[in-house]
Each structure stands twice: as structure tokens, then as C-alpha cells.
Amino acid sequence: MIPASFEYQAPKTLDEALRLVERHGDEAKLLAGGHSLLPLMKLRLATPRYVIDIGHLRGMSYIREENGQIAIGALTTHTEIEQSALLASKCPLLPETAAQIGDVQVRNRGTIGGSLAHADPGADYPAAILALDAEIIAANTSGTRTIPARDFFVDMLTTQLHPGEILTQIRIAPRRAQSGAAYEKLHQPASGFAIVGVAANVLLGEGGKTIEQAAIGITGLSARAFRAEAVERALSGKHISEKVIEDASRNGAEGVEPLSDLHASGEYRREMARVFTRRAVARAIVAARGDA
């Protein structure tokens, strides 16, 4: 790789990193796992003057319980999430999603914070983060703030993060009894990104016959990952049947403008949103019933 020249900085603390980000503004790029930034720099599509390597920050890679929530440090790798015993029992959707990202090398280097902050339209985590109603914690030199996942993704490669902010943590509520989740993905065969990826998180009623709540996050379909509210409405409070799931899934692409590219037309993506929504919801229900 022969990028344009840049100044490399490797802060050791978050405060130091935040000061650098504040000082350099648009001229700086944060480097975490590097899987989005480095390919762009290799092709000189990105030519940052400063590369701030936050990979050396201490205490930013963890998965732990805090005040009844699960907290994940931004520098936690996909592999760490995939293999976490805590997540396997308290939030299995996230390891299931992590396991479908890229390949082993990508998962060993890539971080959840990097992936979310980059907001690639085909990234996998956004679907899960949305379906889990996660909270994203961002810091700047004057403090931290909490951004709900449903507000976080703004447009292609654009999030609610402000200049000078660093994404530091993801918070997720542990799964409830009678709930289940699943991530179903059609991958682009070259890059492994999602052409369409659907994360379904359902809470069933007593006896597992009805859906009380459904949260559906969809990635890949459009410029930004989103909550498929029309699907959620069509499922919530319904008696579970194949027809209910099938009918609800038809709304997967409602109100969004599907992407169209070399790998999939908008028409195909729209149809795949239906298929993969149905598959994800059906499997989430099976997971929820398995808990009963």
C-alpha cells in the first residue's frame, strides 16, 4: 500500500485523542481496525493530513455488565464480540451478526466502533444495533452524550457524530425472557458486505402464540440502515402465523429508496428485503420459543 503522505499520531489516552481530533478537525482521520480507512487511502480516495491511531488507547476494548446494561467498548473487535460468553447469553444477536462480517482476518482487526462510525451502507452491525435499540456513547473534550441507535445513522457514510467526537461505547439492554432475535443476510460475493441484511428482535406473548413487540433493523437496502417500522406494526400484537409473517415482510422496503449497483438492482434488493425479513422474523420467533 502506497498512500499519500500523512502524519501519524498514536495517542495513549482518550483525552489525548479527543484533543487531537479537536485540533485537527477535517484534516484528521481516526484509525481503529483500519478496514474502511486503509483501502480508501490505498487508492488515494482518502488523503488525510493526520491519521490518529486510536488502536493504542487503553481501556476501550471490553464487554461487561454495567447498571443492568451491557457495555461494549468501541475498540472491541468483531472476533471478541463473536466469541463473548456474556453476549452469547445476554445478547446473542450481536455475536451472530459479528460472525457474518467479512472473513477471519477482518474480524480479528475490525472494531465495532469503527464499523458504526464509518456507517457503510452494507455494514452488518447497524441492522443489529437498530433492532436492539442500542445506545451509542460519544465523547468530546467537554463530555459525553448518548445517541439512540435509531437516530444515529443519517445517510451513506454519515452519522450523528459531530466533528471532534469519538464513539466510545455501545450500550445494550440484555434480552428479556420470551424474546428472540436473528440476523439474515445476503452477502455480496466479493466484499462480503450485505446486499440486504435483516436483524429481527421479537418479544412473544405468554405461551409464545403472539408477537408483543417486534424491532426490525435493515441494512444494505438503502443509503442508511433503518428500522422497518411498517413491518414492526404489521407484526406487533398479531397471532403468529406464516401468513402474518409473510404479509408483514412485504413492507420491508416500504418508504425507502433502494440502492442499485453492479451487484444488485433496486428491484432485486427490494425483493430480497422481503425474503430476508421473513427469514429473520421466522428464526427470531423460533429463538424466542426456544427460551420458553
Partner: peptide, 11 residues
């Protein structure tokens, strides 16, 4: 060549 790299050309 729009399949100009391994992100777009699947092996």
C-alpha cells in the same frame, strides 16, 4: 473497468 478490484470482483 468497473470490476476493478477484489471488493467488486468475486473470486
Amino acid at each position: 473497468l468497473i470490476t476493478g478490484e477484489l471488493m467488486d470482483y468475486a473470486l
